[in-house]
Simulated scan of single mutants.
Amino acid sequence: MKYFIFTALIFCFISCSEVASKDSKLIETFKSTNPELPQVSVHRGGKNIQHYPENCLETLQYINDSIFAIYEIDVAQTKDGKLILMHDNAIDRTSTGTGLVKNLSYNELTAFNLVDDYGNETAFKIPLFKDVLKWAKTNNVILTIDIKRSVSQKVVIDAIREVNAEDISVIITYDVEQATTAHALAPELLLSVSARNEEEYNRLLEAEIPTKNMLAFTGTRLSNASLFEKLHAENIVCMLGTLGNLDQQAAAKGEKSYVTWKALGVDIFATDRPFAVYNALK
């Protein structure tokens, strides 16, 4: 009987380990050779849209009704440990409330409404991360998740696993250390890693982070075509952050700029102008 129980426990341990380490579907599909990838990443879930605030579930729904894209969102943590969508440390800029997120309970946050980038108050509330994950999973929408400094990677990864949202979740990291800890915690997840030049990319390789787990963020300036070629040689998807200067440049000089940059090797554009980029590339 003892032998049977011991054997059953070993089998359970192995099976659970295999389930935990099973690669997300994104690791298989996010390849530079895949022509079906979305080409637009919506910064902060949507910015500069009248009556639709950033990091707002209703904004994600609104944009998703019109274009094929992935969505970058920011995850913060309240005083009572709830994970919410919020970019700033304080809620003053994007809501009708005031104060630091870390000093406010989620129940207190529900008293406030979100405000768009033009100062218009909406009827929308600060969303819970788990609700956004559930919506994304139901609608097969990919999220790239920016974990704020005050939040641990483990807490966010646990929340992803709790609703079985691994197949639609990408963890954003900004340096080798963050990428290393994220991969150790969740080897099954795709990671957005900082690879703005060959030196940064080589450091990631030296840290023994598998290239299959990498989505390369090449920065907010155009890199040399040789970097894109090197990343593509490993079938790594390249994302350029046009948010800021490059978006402004394209708005002034014409939307064909996005087509030109794509020809250099850009696979996905992280942008504050999702509709313009989508239409230019379409």
Rank of each mutant, 00 (worst) to 15 (best):
M86D: 05
N279A: 15
R273A: 09
E199Q: 11
N107W: 07
Y258Q: 04
A165R: 09
G254K: 05
T260S: 10
A252R: 02
P127F: 04
H87T: 13
L83W: 08
Q61Y: 07
D116L: 00
D88A: 03
S194G: 04
F269H: 01
P210H: 02
N34T: 08
V115H: 03
T110W: 03
A123C: 02
K25T: 14
H87I: 11
T122M: 01
E177Q: 12
V75D: 05
G119P: 12
S24R: 09
Y106D: 10
V176I: 13
E36D: 10
L222T: 07
E255S: 11
T78A: 02
I168P: 15
S21D: 14
L109Q: 04
H183F: 13
A276L: 13
G244L: 01
I172N: 13
S21H: 14
L128W: 10
E36V: 10
E54Q: 15
D74K: 03
E18S: 05
Y258C: 04
K102Y: 11
A233D: 12
A207P: 10
P274E: 10
L26M: 13
Q77F: 02
C56Q: 05
T242H: 05
Q77V: 15
F6E: 05
A207I: 15
L57P: 10
P127Y: 04
S32K: 04
A280D: 06
M1F: 15
L264A: 08
R149H: 15
D23G: 12
F13G: 01
L227C: 08
R221P: 01
L60M: 07
T98V: 09
F124V: 00
N140W: 04
L264N: 14
E121H: 07
Q39K: 15
K137E: 04
Q77G: 00
D167C: 12
S150T: 15
K282L: 09
E28N: 14
H232P: 03
T29G: 07
Y174I: 06
L109E: 05
G119C: 14
L227G: 02
E188L: 10
P210W: 02
T173F: 08
H232N: 05
G265A: 09
E208V: 13
T242E: 03
A216P: 03
Y278Q: 03
T180F: 07
A225T: 13
N48I: 08
N139Q: 01
K137T: 05
E54L: 03
S194N: 13
N224W: 08
A20C: 07
R221M: 04
F13D: 04
I142E: 11
D23S: 11
K256R: 07
W261Y: 12
Q39T: 15
A8V: 07
I236G: 00
A8R: 03
I27P: 02
R93D: 02
G99W: 01
F13T: 08
P210G: 01
I147Y: 00
D131L: 06
V277F: 00
